[in-house]
């Protein structure tokens, strides 16, 4: 018989993809996971639209642009549990290092002062940066926090397993900011 598999998703906001890499490091356990859950949306798979009714969404990255903001709000509305995966999602981390300086300073530095030909600050295509980079929980409600840069594969596997088993994972002994 076909038992209903849990629908899980991952998204990637302003981050380096390291957390996703770490997640993939659970190696062969991915197969075990695939038996109980479907990955219905992820940068790792080819789905264009974030689906409705997702059980668990792992969020990598901080909220840095208008696009990130829209995306995370949409994801929150359609996910039962949101997991802030890694320091960028939990604290803002490296992307937030621009916060004390402000957006203008870094845009000028990146697009005008680097000696490019025809220097200009892009205004189309590239989404608008928010004045402050924020951790995910500053924008939407977060259910589970997994600090670490990146969190270990073990930790991530534990988090997903516990959530799928219907328990809230206790991570106090497993991970922390930074390492």
């Amino acid at each position: 018989m076909t038992t209903q598999k849990a629908r899980i998703a991952t998204i990637w906001l302003d981050g380096c993809s390291g957390c996703h890499m770490s997640f993939l490091d659970i190696d062969e356990r991915l197969l075990a996971l695939a038996k109980v859950a479907d990955l219905v949306y992820s940068p790792l798979v080819d789905h264009k639209k974030f689906p409705e009714d997702v059980a668990v969404t792992l969020v990598e990255g901080s909220v840095s642009s208008t696009e990130d903001l829209e995306k995370i709000k949409h994801v929150r509305a359609h996910s039962k549990f949101i997991v802030s995966m890694g320091d960028c999602a939990v604290t803002g981390n490296v992307p937030s290092m621009r916060n004390p300086l402000g957006v203008d300073v870094i845009l000028r530095r990146a697009y005008l002062e680097e000696g490019l030909e025809n220097p200009q600050i892009p205004s189309l295509v590239v989404p608008k940066l928010l004045p402050l980079v924020k951790p995910v929980h500053a924008v939407v409600k977060v259910d589970v926090y997994v600090p670490g840069c990146p969190p270990h594969a073990e930790t991530l596997f534990y988090v997903v397993s516990e959530l799928l088993a219907g328990r809230l994972p206790d991570l106090t002994k497993m991970t922390r900011f930074g390492v």
Binding site: D87, T91, N93, V94, S96, M97, F177, G178, V179
Partner: peptide
């Protein structure tokens, strides 16, 4: 402060 553990 500005505590970015990962790059400290």
């Amino acid at each position: 402060g500005n505590h970015i553990c990962s790059v400290c």
